[in-house]
């Protein structure tokens, strides 16, 4: 079965990133296909590479990044939500005339249409939020 997962909360502040990550892993382990993971609202904060949690805590952004690499996942950060919250990839930072970018490997920035398309193409859409 084909799933699209939507993550609407940032890491650490809310459990939804942990829940979505565990769900996505389990879906893959059960042989399902993840068409796309779409990060919206504060969920875009799952895509920063500049987080440095304490050593004894989990590293959510890196775990998502590693999962994307391992399973070749399409993980999309909503551009409108990302711009509000200061999440930039290199090309977007350049376009905006900013001096830095902060997206971790495995995520890419794109439009909200990716969410709608994901839900059209998938058998199930599962929303994780607050």
């Amino acid at each position: 079965m084909i799933f699209t997962v939507m993550v609407n909360e940032g890491p650490y502040q809310h459990q939804s990133s942990d829940s979505a990550l565990a769900f996505t892993r389990a879906a893959l382990a059960e042989g399902h296909t993840i068409f796309r993971v779409f990060f919206y609202n504060d969920g875009v904060n799952n895509g920063t590479r500049l987080a440095v949690p304490p050593k004894d805590d989990r590293e959510l952004q890196k775990e998502w990044s590693a999962l994307a690499k391992e399973h070749d996942l399409d993980m999309v950060i909503c551009i409108a939500a990302a711009q509000r919250r200061g999440l930039m990839d290199a090309s977007e930072a350049e376009r905006q005339g900013l001096d830095a970018n902060n997206i971790i490997d495995g995520f890419h920035i794109s439009g909200l249409g990716q969410l709608i398309e994901g839900s059209i193409q998938s058998d199930r859409t599962v929303v994780f939020g607050d």
């Binding site: 079965m1 769900f23 389990a26 879906a27 382990a29 059960e30 199930r124």
Partner: peptide, 10 residues
Amino acid sequence: DYAGFVELVA
């Protein structure tokens, strides 16, 4: 568990 969660969604 999470596998059961996935099964419920399916």
